[in-house]
Amino acid sequence: MGFKLLSKLLVYLTASIMAIASPLAFSVDSSGEYPTVSEIPVGEVRLYQIADGVWSHIATQSFDGAVYPSNGLIVRDGDELLLIDTAWGAKNTAALLAEIEKQIGLPVTRAVSTHFHDDRVGGVDVLRAAGVATYASPSTRRLAEVEGNEIPTHSLEGLSSSGDAVRFGPVELFYPGAAHSTDNLIVYVPSASVLYGGCAIYELSRTSAGNVADADLAEWPTSIERIQQHYPEAQFVIPGHGLPGGLDLLKHTTNVVKAHTNRSVVE
């Protein structure tokens, strides 16, 4: 069995187990497998329904001669939608809004960016022009300005110390501490036991640490421990890039980060 097929099978099995364990909360999309990078042309966006009122959005972007996937989250909030992270750029984010209108038909009224990198804030200006209120932590807003990236308009308070959590509509926002970046936030959907790890969490097929220019490698494993301790009931975990899975993604990420750190020390 090929690795790609095995990865998709694991996603399907995880979703099936969740649907059985929580039949009222989960209505997993039966329309197909989780979209992969090879299936999404740059400039297009796919939506994948995880649970009743919960979707991931998947886009792709060219970077350094390669094409990478990027995940975000959409959560229903009454007759409105909360968006977590842009679709990595203005063109993708405009396509995301169009796809949401086509498939869901509810307005996106608020959006949260989970850290300051372009795959999370690139497209904020498109959201703002569409009347979406954009939010991020003060740290993310400051770092985005320093980096020359787009800056969300509103500040999220109460997320300055490791372990801080605040309720934001249908989700809980959690600051686990520094990891992929010093400002990275985690998003949890309690009604569906869905954990969105953003770039602080890796997919299972990833074996290298990737972009760690703004990471705190020493603190990252401790931050992941905080996530595990705060959300032990999480059933569906979405990484910032690639295929979702279960809580095993947290341990896998820790292993990859520690291996990278150990290699760096040896070198």
Results as ranks from 00 to 15, higher is better:
Ile201Cys: 00
Pro176Ile: 06
Gly240Ala: 12
Tyr188Pro: 01
Phe26Ile: 07
Gly53Trp: 09
Val257Lys: 15
Ala87Thr: 01
Arg263Met: 04
Val256Lys: 11
Tyr175Cys: 11
Ser264Pro: 12
Gln229Pro: 07
Asp248Glu: 05
Pro190Glu: 11
His57Ile: 15
Glu80Asn: 15
Pro190Arg: 09
Leu97Ser: 13
Gly148Trp: 05
Ser223Ala: 08
Thr109Gln: 02
Ala94Pro: 00
Thr93Tyr: 00
Gly245Thr: 09
Val146Asn: 02
Tyr196Gly: 09
Ala51Gln: 14
Cys199Phe: 04
Val256Leu: 12
Asp77Ala: 02
Val187Tyr: 01
Val265Asn: 11
His57Met: 01
Ser31Asp: 13
Val266Tyr: 13
Ser113Glu: 02
Leu204Gly: 11
Tyr175Arg: 09
Ala136Glu: 10
Gly158Leu: 10
Ile186Thr: 14
Thr60Trp: 06
Gly169Asn: 03
Ile17Thr: 12
Asn149Met: 15
Ala25Lys: 13
Thr207Lys: 07
Leu195Lys: 01
Ser56Gly: 07
Pro176Gly: 14
Arg120Val: 07
Ala192Tyr: 10
Thr109Leu: 11
Asp64Ile: 06
Thr254Ala: 08
Gln228Leu: 11
Ile50Ser: 11
Leu106Asp: 03
Asp52Trp: 05
Arg120Trp: 01
Glu145Val: 13
Gly32Arg: 07
Thr93Cys: 06
His57Lys: 02
Phe3Pro: 11
Ala200Arg: 05
Asp85Gly: 01
Pro35Trp: 09
Glu147Ala: 11
Val166Arg: 09
Ser113Val: 04
Asp183Ser: 03
Arg120Ala: 02
Asp29Gly: 07
Asp216Lys: 06
Arg141Tyr: 14
Ile40Leu: 08
Gly242Phe: 07
Ala66Met: 07
His241Phe: 02
Asn255Phe: 02
Ile186Glu: 05
Gly123Asn: 15
Val237Ser: 10
Ile50Asp: 08
Leu127Pro: 00
Met1Lys: 02
Ile74Cys: 11
Pro232Phe: 15
Val257Phe: 01
Ile224Leu: 09
Ala144Lys: 08
Gly245Ile: 04
Trp88Lys: 00
Leu250Val: 03
Arg76Trp: 12
Leu249Phe: 15
Glu80Cys: 14
Gly78Cys: 03
Leu83Ala: 14
Phe3Asp: 09
Val112Phe: 01
Ala66Gly: 05
Gly78Pro: 11
Leu97Met: 01
Ser205Arg: 13
Thr182His: 13
Ser113Asn: 15
Arg206Tyr: 15
Gly89Ile: 01
Leu159Val: 06
Ser181Val: 11
Phe3His: 08
Val75Gly: 13
Asp52Leu: 09
Arg120Cys: 15
Gln103Tyr: 15
Pro41Gly: 09
Pro244Lys: 10
Asp52Ser: 04
Arg226Thr: 00
Pro221Phe: 14
Glu99Tyr: 15
Ser181Ala: 09
Gly198Ile: 00
Ser161Asn: 14
Phe174Gly: 13
Gly65Lys: 13
Glu157Tyr: 15
Ile238Leu: 12
His230Trp: 12
Thr153Glu: 15
Leu73Phe: 03
Ala136Phe: 13
Gln103His: 10
Leu204Arg: 13
Lys258Asp: 12
Met18Tyr: 03
Val124Ala: 07
Lys251Arg: 05
Ala21Gln: 05
Ser22Ile: 13
Gly89Leu: 07
Arg226Gln: 04
Leu96Asn: 01
Tyr188Glu: 06
Gly177His: 00
Arg142Ile: 02
Glu267Ala: 09
Gly158Gln: 04
Asp29Tyr: 05
Ser162Tyr: 09
Arg46Leu: 05
Glu233Trp: 07
Val28His: 00
Ile201Ala: 06
Leu82Gly: 05
Ser223Thr: 11
Ser205Val: 14
His241Ser: 01
Thr182Phe: 15
Leu97Ala: 03
Val54Gly: 10
Asp125Leu: 11
Pro152Ile: 05
Val257Leu: 15
Phe3Glu: 07
Val189Ala: 12
Leu97Val: 02
Pro190Lys: 11
Ser223Met: 09
Ser193Tyr: 13
Asn149Glu: 02
Gly32Gln: 01
Glu172Ser: 11
Val189Trp: 11
Asp85Tyr: 00
Tyr48Ala: 03
Glu99Ala: 10
Arg226Asn: 14
Ala218Met: 14
His115Asn: 00
Ala179Glu: 02
Phe26Tyr: 09
Gly198Trp: 01
His57Phe: 08
Ile17Cys: 05
Ala144Asn: 14
Glu233Lys: 11
Ser31Glu: 10
Ala215Gln: 11
Ala59Pro: 10
Ile104Phe: 02
Val37Ser: 06
Gly105Phe: 04
Gly65Asn: 03
Val124Gln: 14
Ala25Trp: 07
Asp216His: 07
Ala98Val: 14
Leu127Gly: 08
Glu80Asp: 13
Arg226Asp: 02
Phe3Asn: 14
Asp125Tyr: 10
Pro69Lys: 12
Val45Thr: 09
Ala15His: 02
Gly131Trp: 11
Ile20Thr: 04
Val108Gln: 01
Ala192Leu: 09
Ser16Pro: 04
Asp164Lys: 05
Trp55Tyr: 04
Ile84Ala: 13
Ala133Gln: 05
Gly177Tyr: 10
Pro170Cys: 13
Thr114Asn: 00
Ala66Asp: 06
Ala218Gln: 08
Ile227Glu: 03
Glu33Cys: 13
Ser193Cys: 10
His57Tyr: 01
Ala59Met: 11
Phe174Thr: 07
Val126Ile: 14
Gly65Met: 03
Ser155Glu: 03
Thr60Met: 13
Tyr202Lys: 14
His154Phe: 15
His241Asn: 02
Val121Ser: 13
Ile50Pro: 02
Gln228Thr: 15
Ala192Ile: 14
Gly72Ser: 09
Leu243Phe: 12
Tyr175Asn: 04
Ala259Pro: 09
Val212Gln: 15
Thr60Tyr: 00
Ala98Tyr: 00
Thr109Met: 05
Gly163Met: 13
Ala165Tyr: 04
Asn262His: 09
Met1Gly: 07
Val189Ile: 10
Arg141Leu: 12
Glu147Asp: 04
Asp77Arg: 07
Ala215Ile: 11
Arg46Met: 13
Ala87Trp: 00
Val54Lys: 10
Ser205Ala: 12
Ile186Gly: 11
Leu247Ile: 00
Ala98Asp: 00
Ala66Tyr: 03
Val194Pro: 04
Leu204Lys: 15
Ala136Tyr: 01
Ile100Asp: 00
Tyr68Asn: 05
Gly72Ala: 07
Thr253Met: 02
Leu10Val: 07
Gly169Phe: 13
Ser113His: 14
Glu267Ile: 01
Gln61Asp: 04
Val75Asp: 03
Asp216Trp: 07
Ala95Cys: 13
Pro190Gln: 04
Trp55Leu: 06
Asp216Cys: 08
Thr261Leu: 03
Tyr175Gln: 04
Val256His: 01
Met1Asp: 12
Leu81Pro: 00
Ser181Gly: 12
Gln228Glu: 06
Arg226Met: 15
Thr93Ile: 00
Pro138His: 15
Arg167Trp: 02
Leu143Asn: 07
Val256Tyr: 13
Gly2Ser: 05
Ala213Asp: 12
Tyr68Leu: 03
Pro232Arg: 12
His57Trp: 11
Gly122Lys: 04
Thr134Val: 10
Thr14Tyr: 03
His57Val: 07
Asp29Cys: 09
Ala51Glu: 08
Val187Cys: 15
Ile238His: 05
Tyr175Asp: 07
Leu47Gly: 08
Leu127Asp: 01
Gly197His: 01
Leu73Pro: 00
Val67Gln: 03
Tyr48Ile: 09
Ser264Phe: 03
Val266Asn: 03
Leu81Tyr: 10
Gly123Tyr: 00
Leu10Ile: 06
His57Ser: 04
Glu150Pro: 00
Thr86Gly: 14
Arg141Asp: 14
Leu5Gln: 07
Trp55Lys: 09
Val108Glu: 00
Glu157Ala: 03
Met18Ser: 04
Leu143Phe: 14
Ala200Pro: 05
Ala213Tyr: 03
Ile40Pro: 11
His230Cys: 13
Glu44Met: 09
Leu217Thr: 04
Ala111Cys: 07
Gly163Phe: 02
Asn92Ala: 13
Ile17Ser: 02
Ala234Leu: 15
Glu219Pro: 11
Lys258Val: 12
Val171Thr: 15
Phe168Asp: 13
Phe116Asn: 01
Ile201Pro: 00
Leu185Arg: 01
Ala259Glu: 06
Leu6Trp: 09
Val265Gly: 09
Ala25Gln: 05
Leu156Tyr: 11
Leu173Ser: 03
Thr134Ser: 02
Gly163Asn: 08
Arg263Tyr: 15
Gln229Cys: 14
Met18Glu: 04
Ala94Arg: 13
Ala179Ser: 14
Ala179Val: 04
Glu219Asp: 12
Arg167Gly: 08
Glu150Ile: 00
Phe236Trp: 05
Ser181Glu: 04
Ser191Asp: 15
Gly105Asp: 14
Asn149Arg: 06
Phe174Ala: 11
Pro152Trp: 13
Ala234Ser: 12
Tyr202Asn: 14
Tyr135Asp: 01
Thr254Pro: 11
Ala133Leu: 02
Ser70Met: 06
Thr254Ser: 08
Ser22Arg: 06
Ala209Ser: 13
Ser70Leu: 11
Ala213Thr: 10
Leu83Met: 08
His154Ile: 15
Glu147His: 01
